[in-house]
Structures are given as C-alpha cells and as structure tokens.
Design a binder for these strands. Sequence first.
DNA 1: TGGATCTTTTTCTAGACAGCATGTC
DNA 2: CTAGAAAAAGATCCA
Length: 806
Amino acid sequence: MDVADLPGVPDWLPDHLRDDGIEQLYPPQAEAVESGVTEGQNIVAAIPTASGKTLVAELAMLSAVARGGKALYIVPLRALASEKQAEFEQFEQYGHSVGVSTGNYESDGGWLGDKDIVVATSEKVDSLVRNDAPWLEDLTCVVSDEVHLVDDGQRGPTLEVTLAKLRRLNPDLQTVALSATIGNAGELAGWLDAELVDSDWRPIELQKGVHYGQALHLEDGSQHRLAVQNSEKPTAAIVRDTLQDDHDEDGEVTEEGGSTLVFVNSRRNAEAAAGRLASTVRPHLSADEKAQLEGIAAEIRDVSDTETSDDLADAVKDGAAFHHAGLARGHRELVEQAFQDRLVKVVCATPTLAAGVNTLAARRRAGLAPLRRVGGRDGPLSVLEVHQMMGRAGRPGLDPYGEAVLVASSHDELDELFERYVWADPEPVRSKLAAEPALRTHILATVSSGFARSRKGLLEFLEQTLYASQTDESGRLERVVDDVLTYLERNGFLEVEAGELDATSLGHTVSRLYLDPMSAAEIVDGLEYWARHAGEPDGSDEPDTPEDATADGAFSTASELAEEREESGDIDPDDISALGLYHLVSRTPDMYQLYLRSGDREEYEMALYEREDELLGPTPSEFEDERFEDWLSALKTARLLEDWASEVDEETITERYGVGPGDIRGKVETAQWLLGAAESLAGEVDSDAARAISEARIRVEHGVREELVDLAGVRGVGRKRARRLFEAGIGDRAELRDAAKPVVLAALRGRRKTAENVLENAGHRDPSMEGVEPDPDVEVSEASPRDSEEDEDSDVGEDQSSLGDF
DNA sequence: TGGATCTTTTTCTAGACAGCATGTC
DNA sequence: CTAGAAAAAGATCCA
C-alpha cells in the first residue's frame, strides 16, 4: 500500500513518511490500515518485533488526533517511555504535543491534559485512573504496547484491569493492542472487540537454528561447519564465526564483521561469559577500535568504583560486555551505545531486561547458551520468551539477515531444541488475574475509585476482563473475590454491608498511594506495635502475639496510646530507629528482598539479637522457618539501606551485600517510595511516627546521616556539599542563611556560582559572592583520588533518580 | 607424597512498576 | 515437593 493512499490521516503525513524513506507500507501495516486503524477501528496486531509496529501505533494516534482527539500510549518499562517520547516528538513540528508520565518523571511545561499524545507505563495509567485524572475522559485512542505481557503473573493483571477501566470510562475509545506473535491473538481480539492482524512477516529474514558439536543446523535443513576449537565453549566458536562474517546488506564484503548478543541465565554467567569471550574478540579488533574501547572502558570505571565496574571495563576494552540489572544506569547506557556503534562485538545479557531494550539488537546473531531459567521455580523458558530473544538478531536496514542459534550439548538435545523451540508455535497468553495478590490490590482500587459499589457490580466489572473471557470455570473468580473481600474488610480497607461495598478512609489512601494492601497492613501494624512498645525497657518479655499486647483495648489508635505514654513520660517520638523503619518497609511485599547466602544466616541472626528491640514488630519464632528467614533477609535489606543512609561508600556496600551498583539504586528508590507512603499512612492512623519516617526517608534519599538531613534538603546541596558545609561549622539551613560568606565559599571549594546558588536556595537576602574571598582558615578535605571517587559514586546515584530516563 | 582426575555435596539464583514534588557536583 | 549448574569439597588413582 502506498503512503498516499492512507485514509483518515493528517495531510502532512504522507510527505513526512516519504522524507523518512517510507513509500510503501509493510504488509502487516497495510493490513492494519485496511482493517481500519486510521478510522478509529479497534485492532490487535500480533506481529514480530521490528516489523513496523510503531508505525501502526502512530497511524492510529495521529489519525485520532487529527479528528480532534487525544491518544495514550502504554508501555511496560520506563526506559521505553522515554524512547517512545523521543520518537513521537518528531510530530511536534506539526503542532502535536507529546508528554510522558512515569513514576519518577513527568514531562514539564503544562498539564498532560494539554498534550495530544501521552506516553505512560501501565502502572502509572492505573494510578492516574485511581486518582481521577480528569483528562482520561478526553482520550479517544489508547495503544497498548507488548500486550502479551498480560500473561505476566506480577504485572499482567494491572495492564488488563487498566485497559478494562479505560474502555469503560470511555465506551468509544479506540483500542490498539500490539503484541508479539502468540498462540491466541484471536482471543485477545475477541476480548477487545478488535479486528485481528496476525502475521509473522519480517522485513529481514530470520533463520533459527541449533548448534551442536562442530555444526550449525538451520531450520531450512542446511548445515554449516562451525568448528569448536580445543577447549573453548561453543558460544566462543559462534561469536568468532560471526565476527568473520563480513558481508553487508547487499552481499558486499565490508571491513566489519557481525556482532552477537548472547543470552545467559544468570548475572554471574553473563559476567563469566563476557570475560571468556573478551579473549575471543580481541584479536579481531583494529587499532582504532582498541583505542576507542579504551576510552569507553575509562568512562565505565568513572561511573562507579566497584568490582562490577572494573570487570565490565576489562571486558569492554577487549570488545565484549555484560548487561544485567545490577549495572548502574550509566554502565548500561555506555554498553548499549557501544554495541550500537559496533565497537563492542558481543553482549552477554540476562534475558528479561535485554528483551525489552530495543537498543540491544545484534548485527547478525543472537545466541542462547543454556536455555534453562534461573531457579526452576517458573519452569523452563516459554516458546514466546525464546522467540522474543531470537527476534533480536539482525537489524532491519543494516543486516542482510539475522540468525538465532540455540546451543545443544548432546544429540538428543539438538532434536529436543528443534521440537521444543525452533519449530514450535508460541503458546497462548493466559490472564493471571485470578491470583489473590493481584485481586487484593485491584479490587480495592476498583471499589475505591467508584468503578464498583457492590459485590455484584464488582463481578460485573470483572466480567469485562480478559480473565473472564478466557475462563469457563465460573465459580473460581467469585470464590477468590469473596476471599479478598473478607481480607480487605478484616484489615479495615473496605466496609461490606449487605453486598454494598465502600472503601474506608484508610482504603482510599492505600489505593491512591498505589500500595499493595498487604504492605499497607504490615506498615500500619508496625506503627501500632511501635506505639505500644516504645519506651519499654529492653529485653522485657516481648509478647510474641499481638493479642497479648492489646490488653489495652481501650485505645483505638496508635496515637492515643502514644499520647498516653507521652503524658506518663516514657515515650520519645524520636526513639523510633531508622533501621526499624527500613526493616518495616523491607518486609512488605512491595520490596524485593536480598537473598540470604550461606554465611549470612549466622551473621544476621547475630545482628537480629543485637538490634531486635529497634524492629517494629515481634520477631517470628525460629521454628517458623519461612517467616524467620524472611525476617532475616528483610534485616539484611534494611542494613543495606542503613549503610547507604550513613554515608558508607558504594564500593563497600556492593562488597558487603554481594550486589551491584544498580541494585543499591533500586533498593533506595523503592524504600523512598514506601517510606513516603508510610508517612501518609502514619497521618491516616494518627501515628506520631510521621516525623521520624520523614527523616528516615530523606536520609535514604540523599544518602546522608541524621545531622545532614536539614542541609541536604537545601536545593543544590547533596551528600557531598552538605558534609563539607557541616565540617565548616554550618549545621543547618538557618545557619547557612546567616553564615559568613567566606566560610561558605571556602567550604564549597571556592566555586562562586555554586555558592551563590546555594545561598539563594537557602533563603539568603543577598547571595552575591562578588568580592568575597574564601576563608583560608576553613579546612576543606581536598579531593584526594579516593575522595573524588566517592564523590562520583554519590553523584551517579542522584543522576539515576532524577535524569535517569534520559 | 603429590597431583590429576573423578565424584559427591553444597551453594547459589532474572527482573524493576508505583506517591509526591522537583533538581546532584 | 523446585531445578539445575557451578563451585567446593572429598575420594580415588597412579607415578
């Protein structure tokens, strides 16, 4: 189909597409147009990666906007949100505005309500629905990217429920769902009342195959010799062979060989494989490439001073790299860029993350080493997942073809892999909504935001989900719903009366905070426990069951109890420890806990007995194995947060807890969010803990000790500057405002501009530094190499949370 | 006795959404 | 009721 023949699109679009070199639509795109994407028709497009899904979405959104509407594009990852925003901003020249909304970033300059196209994660959209964002009613088109993720047990239900809510809010909403090729695309289309475009057409050929012994067996039946030399692993042979394959798109011989993306099943394997493959790649590098790679390696070392960083830099200087969630964001960006620039020839990645990162496409080959998933709990990888990874091989317009290779270690496995993955069709996508944890949060939200006011209404709403359209076991959903309703009522989130449902004030708050009700219950329990036990002498016979402690049933809220104690003089609201709060949020289901390793158990049992009385809840009995174990790993997580909030440097933390720099960021970010929520909850249940929670949150946010909390709150002052000002004798914001300018200037190492800025933000009447000289008596710890590295660490941390999505 | 090789036991394990209100050095 | 691989520890063999 010629771009001139598109119905319903803005006038400028055909020319715009031609400028981009697009004259003809790809067959699946044409099919979508024929089915009416540009005319408001609902579409499910189940087509391979890189076959032009984005254009289908753009056609739908632009035609909707041309009709005076407003479009929403839902993505599964924050990183994808900024990627899409950048893509859609090309339309701003035609007067169409684009906005983004994710948890840590919201586009500036005006309301999202003013934007024609909004990009957001599914959770953010859910949250916007819960908080009644007014512009949602103006939507005329919603695009859901990677909609096959409704199959995901963790996050799928959110997408499913959110789509159902959006469609209910606006019955005329055009729904466009983009999916990988799956087994039951028709079923999805049925659920969404959509036309189906189901195709496995690709712009470039993808050959799948299995390597075994000395040969590569392709799905077309051909075999190629691919020799494994002496003691090397098959992956090394594949990578070497790809490097030597130097034909470009038109079959011409070029200087460059192909690059390979290797999927492995654990971080450690990714790092080990990258280390091994570095020696395979090195001999193929030109002098110029080596020089450039040295530069990138240096940048990697600059990102963070950790072992992970060193290992990565060592591999990168030889043209290999690893990629997983333990990396700092700066690491990931450098690796992705260098791979795209074809300087890095091999990336060894863990599966999930890499599958979502579009910049990680291999020129030529994607290889999968051991196909088993980490920790057998979730069974083997699905065909869908494997095909998604295979789809990363070969970049359209750059490569003549792509090749995806599985590695077999026996002849039997060779056959098995062909059967199981190469020739197999992807399995159908199944809704995971009926699981209790998912319903817990979504039922509360559905009632709280008024989508359902009775048990009957709730069930009616749930009828509109994919789950209902897939199940024929009618009783199951109803049973789980009743269980969940009982749970929500018992914990004070909902009131149920004669089938009528109403959220309590607490319930509304929890829904709006986007907390799992179970997390909220844990936090409320913890705060109440503290109110009861604060001020008690240590080591007293701690009651193991809350019932024992509630003999004082006359108090209905934590604060009444606290007040009572305060009056009797044996409570200090400040005696709630930061560690206790970190432990409290670390044990909620919203926080991923650190893994307890063999030696850890003993270590954290010791720590537990030392600091037990700081924790906000009774220690479970050691005989309750699982609960006790959870308690200990929450303590490990809490200690990590405490270290971070005590200005311990990154290198020490990564070593002490066996994590990567990216994991520290992740934990800190989650803790920040949960502590913020806990603060609101404390207000809701009248607890006196709010002040202490706020302080613990700020400490973790800035990574500073207690005495710097006030200073670090001044705009322009972070971990490092706060410490320097403090050492110069400036203790808080007020002292900063009244401080002698030479002292401030000296503490900030003579940076006038910075000092003026800081003073202004602190509220100084006259921040000008003109004519001021640094006070020579102020001792400033000068940047020894060691110090500056620590600077770097904390800076990177801040970077990730604020500018991260760029 | 040393060390090479084989066998058994133990250890370890992917990912990243969300509130609120704005900015590190 | 988890599975599976790698690392560590132990066992065996032979010069």
